[in-house]
Design a protein around this nucleic acid. Structure first.
Lengths: 207, 207
DNA sequence: CGCCTAATATGTCTGGCAGATACGTACGTG
DNA sequence: CACGTACGTATCTGCCAGACATATTAGGCG
């Protein structure tokens, strides 16, 4: 990618928030819901980050309040400024931070080597559950290709791309789990045969 | 997975540290290197976390100093206690936290929809670079299947499993990128044809 | 109509965590 | 012997998620 046109020093989360405001003026809560729906799987936004970052973006002049706390509840809508829009464009061209993964299940698999094959099997089962859950999150992204078309129009093209990546990713992981399970079964079968070779015959029926 | 046998409330990072000490008694620095070599891609351990967590684990009685700050430099070796070993076993059976991903490149792809197809193309190129880098990290895990055999013996089985997952994961992502690039090319070709249909003929050579 | 619950909406607080920085020791090489 | 590099422990700053704290309001129900 290209270089920083002295783009403001924001956190990726702040850029994402700015991105959502570039689609349409909206409140923090709406951003939260949109982020949860569309990109929770690859970049979570928590309210603990959202509200401080909104004020920070406003301080930088990248967004501004749209109307004074209108609406029924005390909700505050925000809109992106021209400055914000050009900063966002510059960010899109800048280098991305490396992908980070935190996968406790894999850590366990790493240390399960010394334990029983049973344990590894249970961990692979858990992994299957984790990723079928993950897939549900992905599927919720386009809950039938029919969002309220106002929002639909605003964010076309790329969301489908993310959706396809999510599907690709989960399917691929599921495939890997199956492979590892077969590999384990094969190893166990082989160990069994070796046992039989050694014992030659001993008992032929058990439980 | 099973339930918590009232296992101590530690962070996954602390459990990972305990895991490394279950393989062999070693110093913080050695853990750091081992973690970097073997599981950096899926669970990073930073020195900012390591040293406080070591002392925390010692307070809980899960590890203890092995000898008094021996060695040439002021390095302190640690060893796991019986309590630590049984806690570790319980952790391996406990539920894992969901997989977390932080992928700024994907966030950009999400918002690049409104921009030019060029931008999307550049982001996919960047993604390719990110994952070929990622693959290098993975390949460094087993730098030729010949580690100093003392360490080798201690952690057999599972590291290879992680290695295979890493390879599977990167290859799968690369494949997705290629698919998206072809998809884009196809869409552009189609748009070109549509243009030609509309203009029918206009100019046939341009810069 | 009044009660309750759930969704809306904005915020704060705590603690996990990475990366930078600091400090100091030992080793190899020119 | 000077310098750079690897070893080794530790702290500080800021990002971040998740829990918690408050209001407000819409809708269901008796």
């Amino acid at each position: 990618m290209a270089q920083d046109d002295q783009l403001p020093d924001l956190t990726p989360t702040a850029w994402a928030i700015l991105g959502f405001l570039s689609l349409k003026a909206q409140s923090g809560y709406e951003i939260l819901r949109a982020a949860k729906r569309s990109m929770e799987a690859f970049w979570g936004i928590s309210n603990g980050q959202l509200y401080p970052q909104l004020h920070h973006l406003a301080e930088q002049g990248l967004i501004r309040p749209a109307g004074e706390a209108e609406g029924p509840r005390s909700r505050q809508r925000w809109e992106i400024t021209d400055l914000g829009r050009s900063a966002l464009r510059a960010w899109l061209e800048s280098l991305s931070s490396p992908v980070q993964i935190r996968d406790e299940n894999l850590v366990k698999l790493f240390f399960a080597g010394g334990g029983s094959p049973d344990l590894v099997g249970r961990l692979l089962e858990e992994r299957k559950k984790i990723f079928s859950q993950f897939e549900k999150v992905i599927d919720a992204v386009l809950p039938g290709d029919r969002l309220p078309e106002a929002e639909q129009a605003a964010s076309l093209g790329a969301p489908e791309l993310l959706f396809r990546y999510g599907k690709h990713f989960t399917k691929s992981t599921m495939r890997w789990i199956d492979q590892e399970e077969s590999r384990m079964l094969a190893a166990l079968r082989k160990a069994d045969e070796d046992d039989k070779d050694k014992e030659d015959e001993d008992d032929e029926e058990r439980s």
